[in-house]
Amino acid sequence: MQLFETILSQYGPMVSKVCYMYGTDEDQRKDLYQECMANVWQGLRSFRGDSKLSTWLYRACINTCITAYRRNAVRATVPLDSAPPIAADDNSRSDDLKEMYRLISQLSPVERALIMMWLDEKSYDEISDVTGMPRNTVASRLRRIKAKLVDLANN
């Protein structure tokens, strides 16, 4: 229970960010957050400490979100005006945040997972551990995703 409370307080924001990436409205994001935490709660018994807690949580959340994403048959990209109601530290970054979500929402579910972990400064080894992709594949996929995002931003 103590570990779970630590997860809620310290990693709740991280889990929220992941859910925002896969949900298209507030209700869906809340449902995803609950589903992620329910899986984490059940999975805590089997947490062996082989990997960092943040890596383990990322794996649980991304697995939950990708599974739910297809089950909910979400296809549309996030409309600009319904970008998540989260604040930027600096008000001038609010438009950047919306634009960021608009761009990332055009990626496939697995691509979103890769870019999210890269944006959170996870190492290629950690990303490889979470996704199950070889390290070299992670590196080459990230290169392609970054090029795709720049392309989408310019168009």
Binding site: P85, I86, A87, D89, R93, D96, M100, L119
Partner: peptide, 16 residues
């Protein structure tokens, strides 16, 4: 918006 802007935007997020 380039990749560095994207990273700055991501890291500037402040969950309620």
């Amino acid at each position: 918006m380039d990749i560095d802007d994207l990273k700055r935007a991501w890291q500037s997020q402040n969950m309620r």
